[in-house]
Design a protein around this nucleic acid. Structure first.
Length: 424
RNA sequence: GGAGAAAUGGCAGAGUGGUCGAUUGCGGCAGUCUUGAAAACUGUUGAACCGUGAGGUUCCUGGGGUUCGAAUCCCUAUUUCUCCGCCA
C-alpha cells in the first residue's frame, strides 16, 4: 500500500511511475484519493473539536460534583446531550471516509523504480545477462515428464487420484532429490547469514493483507473457509509478516531470514502446454529468502540477493539468464524485480525459477514494520524477498539438461545430499 | 471438548468511575564522574492523526454498550494460563 502522504506530496511523480506499470485510470483514481484525503482532514477537525469541547465539559462536571455543586453540574450535563449526537455523527463520517480511502488505496500497485523498463508483456523484459552454455542433447532425448516416468521419479497420475492435477507424488530417487535440493538451498542460505525459520503454512487474512496477496490475489490462494485461513502461496507471506506491527532498532537491520515451505497456488486461469509436467503445479516446494532492510541499503541488498540466487544456479551447472521485469510484467507490490530463468533443454525454452524483488515500503507500510532512525524518528523499513529456489522447474531442467544415454547425471554439489550421482 | 482465571507501554508489573497516556522497576538514550569501561548519580524515553504554531484528538487485546466522564462497569470475539478429558 502506498503512503498517503507521498501521494499527496508527489502527485506528478506517482502518476508518471504508475504509467510504467500500465495502471489504468491512474489520474482519476489518484485525484479521488487526494480529494477524499482532504475531506478526511476537515472531518477529523470537526470531530476533534467536538470531542475537545465534550472532554472539557466532562472535566468541569467532575470538579463541580466534587465540590458538591450538584445543580451547576446538572446544567452542564444538559449541554452535553447535544454534543453527544454531533460526536457520533462526525465520527461516523470520518470512519466512512477513511474506509473509502483504504478501499481505493489497496487497489493501487506499488510505484516501480525509475529504472524499470517500459513495457506490457514478457517480451518487453530486459535481459540482464545469460550464463552457461546451452547443452546439446543426445538423439532421443526427452522432456522431463517422460524422464520422470522412465526412471519412476514422479507419479503425476497417482497425484490426480489422491488430490487432483498439479499435485504430483515424488517417489524413490525423485523424492530424495527434492529433499537434497531443499537441504542444499537451506545450507547455502544459512552460510550466507540467513536465519532459518520454519513458519506455519496456513495464515490468517491479516497476514494475507500484510504482504499484499489480499485483496489483489484473493482467488489465487486456497482458502479454508471454516477457519478463515489461507494456504500460503509462498513463504514470503508468513516470514515477512513476522515483522508486522514491529518497531525495530536501526542497528537490527538488515534482518535476513530464509525458510523452506511447500507453496500452494490455485493457478486459476492457467492452461495449455505450459502447464505440463513440472512446469506449473498447485503444490510445490520452495526455499525463500527474505530481508527487512534500511531504505538506503535496499537496492544494494537486492543485488546481493540476485547474486546469491545466481550462485546457486552456477553451482548446479544450469544455464540461466536474468531478466529485469518491465512495468507490465511486474507484480502488484514490487518496485523492481529480477526473474531468473533456467534453460530447459528438451522443451527448448526458459523456465522461471526465481523472482527477486524489492518492495520498498509497499509491504512495510501495510505491515507497519518500522525502525527508529538516529534521530529517534520511526521510519518504514524496506522489505525484499526472493526464491532461492523453487524446486519443480529446477528439477525439470536438471533432468532434461543432464540426461545421457546412460542416465541422468546429478550435479557435483548435490551428490553429498542425494547420496547418488546418477539416476538410471 | 468441560470448568476456572487472565490480557496494561520494549519487558516486568501498579492502577476498580473524574486530576491516568497511565506509579514503579528493568531495559534504551543523553549527561556527570572516569585515561576508557563498569558501578553510582542526574535527566530523558510509546504510537498514530489534525494544526504553520500554541495546541487538539485517538489508542490500556479487537468489536459493541452503560455514563456528563471508562484502563476501571456490562456484553461479545480472540488469545494466554491452570485443572479435567482426549491425543501425535
Amino acid at each position: 500500500m502506498l503512503q498517503l502522504s507521498y501521494i499527496r506530496e508527489n502527485k506528478e511523480d506517482v502518476l508518471k511511475r504508475l504509467a510504467i506499470k500500465n495502471f489504468k485510470d491512474a489520474e482519476n483514481i489518484i485525484n479521488s484519493i487526494i480529494e477524499l484525503d482532504n475531506n478526511r482532514k476537515s472531518a477529523q477537525r470537526l470531530a476533534d473539536d467536538v470531542k475537545a469541547e465534550a472532554n472539557g465539559l466532562a472535566k468541569q462536571i467532575g470538579e463541580l460534583m466534587k465540590s458538591g455543586k450538584k445543580e451547576e453540574a446538572e446544567t452542564l450535563k444538559a449541554k452535553t446531550a447535544d454534543l453527544k449526537g454531533k460526536e457520533k455523527e462526525f465520527d461516523e463520517t470520518l470512519k466512512t471516509i477513511e474506509q473509502d480511502i483504504h478501499k481505493i488505496l489497496v487497489t493501487v500497485p506499488n510505484l516501480p523504480n525509475i529504472t524499470v523498463p517500459v513495457g506490457k508483456t514478457p517480451e518487453d523484459n530486459e535481459v540482464v545477462n545469460e550464463h552457461g552454455a546451452i547443452p546439446t542433447l543426445h538423439a532421443g532425448a526427452t522432456p522431463h515428464w517422460e524422464l520422470t516416468t522412465k526412471y519412476d521419479l514422479i507419479d503425476f497420475e497417482l497425484g490426480v487420484k489422491l488430490t487432483g492435477a498439479g499435485f504430483p507424488v515424488y517417489k524413490g530417487k525423485g523424492a530424495r532429490l527434492q529433499r537434497a535440493l531443499i537441504n542444499y538451498f537451506l545450507d547455502k542460505a544459512t552460510s550466507k547469514g540467513y536465519n532459518e525459520v520454519q513458519p506455519p503454512i496456513l495464515v490468517n487474512a491479516d497476514s494475507g493483507y500484510g504482504t499484499g496477496q489480499l485483496p489483489d490475489k484473493e482467488g489465487q490462494m486456497y482458502h479454508c473457509q471454516v477457519d478463515d485461513l489461507y494456504l500460503i502461496p509462498t513463504a514470503e507471506v508468513p516470514i515477512t509478516n513476522m515483522y508486522r506491527d514491529v518497531i525495530l532498532k536501526e542497528s537490527d537491520l538488515p534482518i535476513k531470514n530464509c525458510g523452506y515451505t511447500p507453496c500452494f497456488r490455485r493457478e486459476a486461469g492457467s492452461y495449455g502446454k505450459d502447464v505440463r509436467g513440472l512446469n506449473r503445479l498447485h503444490q510445490f516446494d520452495k526455499v525463500e529468502i527474505v530481508q527487512i532492510a534500511h531504505p538506503d541499503k535496499s537496492y544494494e541488498i537486492l543485488e546481493n540477493m540476485r547474486e546469491f540466487v545466481s550462485s546457486l544456479l552456477q553451482e548446479l551447472e544450469l544455464p540461466y539468464r536474468t531478466l529485469k521485469l518491465c512495468g507490465g510484467d511486474m507484480s502488484f507490490g514490487s518496485a523492481l524485480t529480477y526473474d531468473l530463468e533456467v534453460w530447459s533443454a528438451a522443451q527448448g525454452r526458459w523456465l522461471e525459477v526465481s523472482s527477486v524483488s524489492n518492495f520498498e515500503t509497499f509491504q512495510t507500510n501495510r505491515l507497519k514494520c518500522r525502525y527508529k532512525d538516529a534521530n529517534g524518528k520511526t521510519q518504514l523499513a524496506h522489505s525484499l524477498n526472493g526464491s532461492a529456489l523453487a524446486l519443480p522447474r529446477i528439477v525439470a531442467s536438471l533432468l532434461e539438461n543432464n540426461q545421457t544415454e546412460a542416465g541422468i547425471k546429478i550435479p557435483k554439489v548435490l551428490v553429498p545430499y542425494t547420496g547418488f550421482d546418477m539416476i538410471n
